[in-house]
Protein backbone atom coordinates (compact mmCIF):
# COMPACT_ATOMS: atom_id res chain seq x y z
CA UNK A 1 0.00 0.00 0.00
CA UNK A 2 2.64 2.52 1.01
CA UNK A 3 4.79 3.88 -1.77
CA UNK A 4 8.49 3.42 -1.31
CA UNK A 5 10.30 6.72 -0.83
CA UNK A 6 12.37 6.26 -3.97
CA UNK A 7 9.32 5.70 -6.09
CA UNK A 8 7.72 8.80 -4.71
CA UNK A 9 10.75 10.91 -5.49
CA UNK A 10 11.02 9.52 -8.98
CA UNK A 11 7.44 10.09 -9.91
CA UNK A 12 6.98 13.53 -8.46
CA UNK A 13 10.33 15.07 -9.32
CA UNK A 14 10.36 15.23 -13.16
CA UNK A 15 7.11 17.06 -13.76
CA UNK A 16 8.15 19.70 -11.26
CA UNK A 17 11.14 20.55 -13.44
CA UNK A 18 9.64 22.42 -16.41
CA UNK A 19 7.23 24.48 -14.35
CA UNK A 20 10.13 26.32 -12.72
CA UNK A 21 7.84 28.47 -10.63
CA UNK A 22 6.47 25.30 -9.04
CA UNK A 23 7.49 23.58 -5.85
CA UNK A 24 11.17 24.39 -6.22
CA UNK A 25 10.65 28.12 -6.09
CA UNK A 26 8.11 27.48 -3.40
CA UNK A 27 10.56 25.90 -1.05
CA UNK A 28 13.29 28.40 -1.84
CA UNK A 29 11.12 31.32 -0.91
CA UNK A 30 9.77 29.37 2.00
CA UNK A 31 11.72 30.83 4.89
CA UNK A 32 11.49 34.35 3.56
CA UNK A 33 7.75 34.29 3.26
CA UNK A 34 6.99 32.35 6.37
CA UNK A 35 4.95 35.18 7.80
CA UNK A 36 2.73 35.12 4.68
CA UNK A 37 0.21 32.73 6.17
CA UNK A 38 -1.02 33.09 9.68
CA UNK A 39 -0.53 30.03 11.83
CA UNK A 40 -3.57 27.78 11.67
CA UNK A 41 -5.81 27.75 14.65
CA UNK A 42 -8.16 24.89 14.87
CA UNK A 43 -10.61 23.64 17.38
CA UNK A 44 -9.53 20.13 16.54
CA UNK A 45 -7.51 18.35 19.14
CA UNK A 46 -4.59 18.17 16.77
CA UNK A 47 -4.19 21.41 14.87
CA UNK A 48 -3.73 21.25 11.12
CA UNK A 49 -0.30 22.50 10.37
CA UNK A 50 1.01 23.65 7.09
CA UNK A 51 4.76 23.57 7.10
CA UNK A 52 5.38 25.17 3.75
CA UNK A 53 3.08 28.04 2.80
CA UNK A 54 1.64 28.13 -0.69
CA UNK A 55 2.95 31.11 -2.62
CA UNK A 56 0.62 31.43 -5.57
CA UNK A 57 -2.76 30.23 -4.42
CA UNK A 58 -5.71 29.63 -6.71
CA UNK A 59 -7.99 28.88 -3.76
CA UNK A 60 -7.69 30.42 -0.35
CA UNK A 61 -9.97 28.85 2.22
CA UNK A 62 -10.53 30.53 5.57
CA UNK A 63 -12.45 28.57 8.19
CA UNK A 64 -14.63 26.91 5.60
CA UNK A 65 -17.29 24.62 7.03
CA UNK A 66 -19.88 22.73 5.06
CA UNK A 67 -23.15 21.63 6.60
CA UNK A 68 -25.88 19.33 5.45
CA UNK A 69 -28.81 20.68 7.41
CA UNK A 70 -27.42 21.03 10.91
CA UNK A 71 -24.83 18.29 10.42
CA UNK A 72 -21.34 19.71 9.97
CA UNK A 73 -19.72 17.48 7.36
CA UNK A 74 -16.38 19.32 7.28
CA UNK A 75 -15.38 22.00 9.72
CA UNK A 76 -12.97 24.91 9.85
CA UNK A 77 -10.83 24.18 6.84
CA UNK A 78 -8.11 26.74 6.31
CA UNK A 79 -5.79 26.04 3.42
CA UNK A 80 -4.40 27.41 0.19
CA UNK A 81 -4.54 25.43 -3.02
CA UNK A 82 -1.55 26.20 -5.26
CA UNK A 83 -1.90 27.26 -8.86
CA UNK A 84 -0.66 24.97 -11.64
CA UNK A 85 0.03 22.15 -9.28
CA UNK A 86 -1.78 19.02 -8.29
CA UNK A 87 -3.29 18.91 -4.84
CA UNK A 88 -4.51 15.60 -3.49
CA UNK A 89 -7.21 15.16 -0.86
CA UNK A 90 -6.83 11.93 1.04
CA UNK A 91 -8.49 10.53 4.11
CA UNK A 92 -10.85 7.85 5.35
CA UNK A 93 -14.30 7.46 3.85
CA UNK A 94 -16.83 9.97 5.06
CA UNK A 95 -14.34 12.60 6.15
CA UNK A 96 -15.75 15.10 3.69
CA UNK A 97 -13.28 15.09 0.82
CA UNK A 98 -15.99 15.07 -1.84
CA UNK A 99 -18.00 17.57 0.13
CA UNK A 100 -15.14 20.04 0.28
CA UNK A 101 -14.28 19.45 -3.37
CA UNK A 102 -17.86 20.09 -4.47
CA UNK A 103 -18.00 23.29 -2.52
CA UNK A 104 -14.98 24.65 -4.41
CA UNK A 105 -17.07 25.06 -7.56
CA UNK A 106 -20.45 25.42 -5.87
CA UNK A 107 -21.69 22.03 -6.99
CA UNK A 108 -22.88 21.68 -3.41
CA UNK A 109 -25.52 24.30 -4.17
CA UNK A 110 -27.37 21.51 -5.93
CA UNK A 111 -27.47 19.30 -2.84
CA UNK A 112 -30.57 20.01 -0.76
CA UNK A 113 -29.74 21.37 2.65
CA UNK A 114 -26.06 21.99 1.97
CA UNK A 115 -24.64 25.29 3.18
CA UNK A 116 -21.16 26.76 3.35
CA UNK A 117 -19.75 29.15 5.91
CA UNK A 118 -16.35 30.81 6.02
CA UNK A 119 -14.47 32.43 3.21
CA UNK A 120 -13.61 30.68 -0.01
CA UNK A 121 -11.49 32.97 -2.15
CA UNK A 122 -10.81 32.00 -5.75
CA UNK A 123 -8.40 34.31 -7.57
CA UNK A 124 -9.21 37.09 -5.15
CA UNK A 125 -12.99 36.69 -5.39
CA UNK A 126 -15.24 35.17 -2.80
CA UNK A 127 -16.94 32.26 -4.52
CA UNK A 128 -19.91 32.51 -2.18
CA UNK A 129 -20.45 36.25 -2.50
CA UNK A 130 -24.13 36.97 -3.13
CA UNK A 131 -23.63 38.43 -6.61
CA UNK A 132 -21.56 35.52 -7.89
CA UNK A 133 -23.16 33.39 -10.59
CA UNK A 134 -22.62 29.72 -9.72
CA UNK A 135 -22.81 28.72 -13.39
CA UNK A 136 -19.91 31.05 -14.15
CA UNK A 137 -17.94 29.62 -11.22
CA UNK A 138 -18.46 26.11 -12.56
CA UNK A 139 -17.44 27.08 -16.04
CA UNK A 140 -14.06 28.22 -14.72
CA UNK A 141 -13.72 25.39 -12.27
CA UNK A 142 -14.45 22.16 -14.07
CA UNK A 143 -15.17 18.82 -12.51
CA UNK A 144 -14.59 15.17 -13.30
CA UNK A 145 -16.70 12.69 -11.42
CA UNK A 146 -16.01 9.34 -9.86
CA UNK A 147 -18.26 7.47 -12.26
CA UNK A 148 -17.71 8.29 -15.94
CA UNK A 149 -20.84 10.17 -16.97
CA UNK A 150 -20.82 10.92 -20.69
CA UNK A 151 -24.07 12.24 -22.13
CA UNK A 152 -26.11 9.83 -24.25
CA UNK A 153 -24.89 11.71 -27.30
CA UNK A 154 -22.15 11.18 -29.81
CA UNK A 155 -18.50 11.48 -28.80
CA UNK A 156 -18.26 14.72 -30.75
CA UNK A 157 -21.36 16.17 -29.14
CA UNK A 158 -20.09 15.24 -25.71
CA UNK A 159 -16.95 17.31 -26.16
CA UNK A 160 -18.76 20.09 -28.00
CA UNK A 161 -21.44 20.38 -25.32
CA UNK A 162 -19.61 22.80 -23.04
CA UNK A 163 -18.27 25.10 -25.76
CA UNK A 164 -21.71 25.25 -27.38
CA UNK A 165 -23.27 26.02 -24.04
CA UNK A 166 -20.92 28.91 -23.53
CA UNK A 167 -21.50 30.35 -26.97
CA UNK A 168 -18.19 29.27 -28.49
CA UNK A 169 -18.00 30.67 -32.01
CA UNK A 170 -14.67 29.47 -33.29
CA UNK A 171 -13.46 26.30 -34.93
CA UNK A 172 -15.50 23.75 -33.02
CA UNK A 173 -14.11 20.76 -34.93
CA UNK A 174 -10.61 21.91 -34.12
CA UNK A 175 -11.44 22.40 -30.46
CA UNK A 176 -13.00 18.94 -30.22
CA UNK A 177 -9.97 17.37 -31.86
CA UNK A 178 -7.57 19.29 -29.67
CA UNK A 179 -9.44 18.36 -26.49
CA UNK A 180 -9.53 14.70 -27.46
CA UNK A 181 -5.84 14.82 -28.36
CA UNK A 182 -4.95 16.24 -24.98
CA UNK A 183 -6.54 13.29 -23.23
CA UNK A 184 -4.94 10.87 -25.68
CA UNK A 185 -8.26 9.70 -27.03
CA UNK A 186 -8.14 11.20 -30.51
CA UNK A 187 -6.35 8.32 -32.21
CA UNK A 188 -8.77 5.86 -30.61
CA UNK A 189 -11.98 7.61 -31.57
CA UNK A 190 -11.24 9.81 -34.57
CA UNK A 191 -13.08 7.45 -36.92
CA UNK A 192 -16.17 7.16 -34.76
CA UNK A 193 -16.88 10.65 -33.53
CA UNK A 194 -20.53 10.18 -34.44
CA UNK A 195 -20.94 7.12 -32.27
CA UNK A 196 -22.44 7.25 -28.81
CA UNK A 197 -20.14 8.15 -25.96
CA UNK A 198 -21.66 5.24 -24.10
CA UNK A 199 -20.14 2.81 -26.58
CA UNK A 200 -16.64 3.43 -25.19
CA UNK A 201 -14.85 1.48 -22.49
CA UNK A 202 -14.89 2.79 -18.94
CA UNK A 203 -11.39 4.24 -19.19
CA UNK A 204 -12.15 5.83 -22.54
CA UNK A 205 -15.37 7.24 -21.15
CA UNK A 206 -13.52 8.81 -18.25
CA UNK A 207 -10.99 10.37 -20.62
CA UNK A 208 -13.89 11.57 -22.75
CA UNK A 209 -15.31 13.22 -19.65
CA UNK A 210 -11.98 14.89 -18.98
CA UNK A 211 -11.86 16.06 -22.60
CA UNK A 212 -15.36 17.42 -22.20
CA UNK A 213 -14.31 19.25 -19.04
CA UNK A 214 -11.20 20.82 -20.58
CA UNK A 215 -12.99 21.79 -23.80
CA UNK A 216 -14.47 24.79 -21.98
CA UNK A 217 -10.91 25.79 -21.05
CA UNK A 218 -11.41 25.98 -17.33
CA UNK A 219 -8.84 27.31 -14.92
CA UNK A 220 -9.13 24.57 -12.33
CA UNK A 221 -10.00 20.92 -12.67
CA UNK A 222 -11.57 19.12 -9.72
CA UNK A 223 -11.44 15.35 -9.84
CA UNK A 224 -13.33 13.14 -7.42
CA UNK A 225 -11.76 9.69 -7.45
CA UNK A 226 -11.51 9.77 -11.24
CA UNK A 227 -9.81 6.38 -11.43
CA UNK A 228 -11.78 4.37 -8.93
CA UNK A 229 -13.79 2.61 -11.64
CA UNK A 230 -10.81 1.95 -13.89
CA UNK A 231 -8.23 -0.78 -14.36
CA UNK A 232 -4.53 -0.11 -13.63
CA UNK A 233 -3.64 0.67 -17.25
CA UNK A 234 -6.43 3.16 -17.72
CA UNK A 235 -5.51 4.59 -14.33
CA UNK A 236 -1.92 5.13 -15.43
CA UNK A 237 -3.11 6.84 -18.60
CA UNK A 238 -5.18 9.24 -16.58
CA UNK A 239 -2.32 9.88 -14.20
CA UNK A 240 -0.05 10.70 -17.13
CA UNK A 241 -2.74 12.99 -18.38
CA UNK A 242 -2.89 14.76 -15.03
CA UNK A 243 0.86 15.31 -15.23
CA UNK A 244 0.49 16.90 -18.63
CA UNK A 245 -2.49 18.99 -17.68
CA UNK A 246 -1.00 20.61 -14.64
CA UNK A 247 1.16 22.97 -16.66
CA UNK A 248 -2.02 24.76 -17.67
CA UNK A 249 -4.52 23.79 -14.99
CA UNK A 250 -4.64 23.76 -11.25
CA UNK A 251 -5.87 20.33 -10.29
CA UNK A 252 -7.44 19.06 -7.10
CA UNK A 253 -7.87 15.32 -6.94
CA UNK A 254 -9.59 13.17 -4.35
CA UNK A 255 -8.20 9.70 -4.15
CA UNK A 256 -8.26 6.64 -1.92
CA UNK A 257 -5.16 5.34 -3.57
CA UNK A 258 -2.09 6.37 -1.58
CA UNK A 259 0.26 5.48 -4.39
CA UNK A 260 -1.75 7.57 -6.76
CA UNK A 261 -1.67 10.56 -4.44
CA UNK A 262 2.08 10.11 -4.09
CA UNK A 263 2.55 9.74 -7.83
CA UNK A 264 0.48 12.61 -9.15
CA UNK A 265 0.30 15.30 -6.53
CA UNK A 266 2.60 18.08 -5.43
CA UNK A 267 0.70 18.71 -2.24
CA UNK A 268 -1.43 16.46 -0.18
CA UNK A 269 -4.11 17.32 2.31
CA UNK A 270 -4.95 14.62 4.80
CA UNK A 271 -8.44 14.78 6.29
CA UNK A 272 -9.86 12.76 9.08
CA UNK A 273 -12.99 12.51 11.15
CA UNK A 274 -13.26 14.04 14.59
CA UNK A 275 -16.04 12.73 16.72
CA UNK A 276 -17.71 15.28 18.92
CA UNK A 277 -18.14 13.74 22.36
CA UNK A 278 -21.27 15.67 23.23
CA UNK A 279 -23.39 15.10 20.15
CA UNK A 280 -21.54 12.24 18.51
CA UNK A 281 -21.24 14.40 15.40
CA UNK A 282 -18.67 13.14 12.93
CA UNK A 283 -17.01 16.17 11.46
CA UNK A 284 -14.26 16.04 8.87
CA UNK A 285 -11.13 18.01 9.73
CA UNK A 286 -7.96 18.88 7.91
CA UNK A 287 -5.27 17.07 9.84
CA UNK A 288 -2.20 17.86 7.83
CA UNK A 289 -1.47 19.65 4.60
CA UNK A 290 1.96 19.78 3.10
CA UNK A 291 4.22 18.87 0.22
CA UNK A 292 3.36 15.36 -0.87
CA UNK A 293 6.87 14.10 -0.26
CA UNK A 294 6.66 15.39 3.27
CA UNK A 295 3.27 13.84 3.93
CA UNK A 296 4.38 10.45 2.73
CA UNK A 297 7.89 10.37 4.06
CA UNK A 298 7.98 12.53 7.10
CA UNK A 299 4.54 13.59 8.25
CA UNK A 300 4.31 15.86 11.25
CA UNK A 301 1.23 14.16 12.68
CA UNK A 302 1.01 10.69 14.03
CA UNK A 303 -2.48 10.28 12.51
CA UNK A 304 -1.14 11.11 9.08
CA UNK A 305 1.62 8.61 9.40
CA UNK A 306 -0.76 5.93 10.60
CA UNK A 307 -3.01 6.58 7.64
CA UNK A 308 -0.43 6.73 4.88
CA UNK A 309 1.34 3.66 6.15
CA UNK A 310 -1.95 1.80 6.24
CA UNK A 311 -2.20 1.35 9.98
CA UNK A 312 -5.46 3.26 10.14
CA UNK A 313 -8.47 2.95 7.92
Amino acid sequence: MTPSPTQTEERTAPPAGPGAAGPAADSAADSAAAEGTPPEESTATQPAEEQEPVQDAVFDLQDVSVRYGSFIAVGDITMKVPRHQVTAFIGPSGCGKSTLLRCLNRMNDLVPGASVTGELIYNGENVYAPDVDPAEVRRRIGMVFQKPNPFPKSIYENVAFGPRLNGFSGDLDGLVQQSLERVGLWSEVKDKLKESGHALSGGQQQRLCIARAIAVEPDVLLMDEPCSALDPIATLKIEDLIHQLKSTYSIVIVTHNMQQAARVSDRTAFFSVNIDDHQGMRTGRLVEYDRTTKIFNNPAQQRTEDYVTGRFG
Binding site: N105, M107, L110, A135, E136, R138, R139, R140, G142, M143, F145, K147, N149, P150, F151, P152, F161, G162, L165, N166, C209, R212, A213, V216
Partner: peptide, 14 residues
Amino acid sequence: PMDQQNAAYALGAT
Protein backbone atom coordinates in the same frame (compact mmCIF):
# COMPACT_ATOMS: atom_id res chain seq x y z
CA PRO B 1 -29.87 10.34 -14.30
CA MET B 2 -28.49 12.88 -11.84
CA ASP B 3 -24.91 12.30 -12.89
CA GLN B 4 -25.56 13.58 -16.40
CA GLN B 5 -27.24 16.65 -15.03
CA ASN B 6 -24.27 17.18 -12.73
CA ALA B 7 -21.94 16.88 -15.69
CA ALA B 8 -23.80 19.69 -17.42
CA TYR B 9 -23.88 21.84 -14.29
CA ALA B 10 -20.14 21.35 -13.91
CA LEU B 11 -19.67 22.75 -17.42
CA GLY B 12 -21.43 25.95 -16.41
CA ALA B 13 -24.99 25.13 -17.42
CA THR B 14 -27.88 26.92 -15.73
